[in-house]
């Protein structure tokens, strides 16, 4: 009992610390990409640790196993990289000051854009390509 409670308390404090670090990075970092870097990792890890601690607590101390937290962990771990990628793509495409500073892509189109002449069309099956 006391072991489960100690594990739960440790994970809750760890998760709160990581969440705080992510928000601190969001508040004090100088530009957008560095601001994006903090919360997308630290907040996900912090939220995962808090929810894991809550799962351990309800399983070990209250004696009623709960899978709701696992549902939230899975959902957040799937959606956080997607929203991070969306924000980074919108930032690259809307901010014209950063685009010359990026490495060349080797094609005519820039970063985070669909290349119409990309080899994707070669990989399509012939029936689709004929259309």
């Amino acid at each position: 009992m006391i072991v489960f409670e100690a594990i739960a308390a440790f994970f809750i404090v760890l998760g709160a610390f990581f969440m705080f670090v992510g928000s601190l990075a969001l508040a004090i970092m100088p530009d957008m990409m560095r601001r994006l870097h903090g919360p997308t990792k630290a907040s996900t890890l912090g939220l995962g640790a808090i929810l894991f601690g809550s799962m351990v607590y309800s399983f070990g101390v209250r004696g009623e196993p709960s899978v709701h937290e696992f549902l939230i962990i899975v959902f957040v771990f799937i959606t956080a990289p997607v929203s991070g990628m969306m924000i980074a793509k919108a930032f690259i495409l809307t901010n014209h000051a950063v685009r010359p500073t990026l490495t060349a892509t080797g094609t005519a189109t820039g970063w985070a854009t669909l290349d119409p002449g990309a080899p994707t069309s070669d990989r399509l099956p012939p029936a689709i390509k004929a259309d």
């Binding site: 739960a8 809750i12 998760g15 709160a16 969440m19 992510g22 928000s23 969001l26 957008m32 601001r35 994006l36 919360p39 907040s43 996900t44 912090g46 939220l47 808090i50 929810l51 601690g53 809550s54 607590y57 309800s58 937290e69 939230i72 957040v76 956080a80 929203s83 924000i87 919108a90 930032f91 809307t94 901010n95």
Partner: peptide, 26 residues
């Protein structure tokens, strides 16, 4: 300064609120 900063801040705000609600559940 940028609208995207505000979007990112809103995303992180929601994540922090979820953490706070989970701690309240414990």
């Amino acid at each position: 300064p940028d609208p995207l900063d505000r979007v990112l801040a809103l995303d992180t705000l929601v994540i922090n609120a979820i953490g706070l609600i989970a701690a309240m559940g414990v």
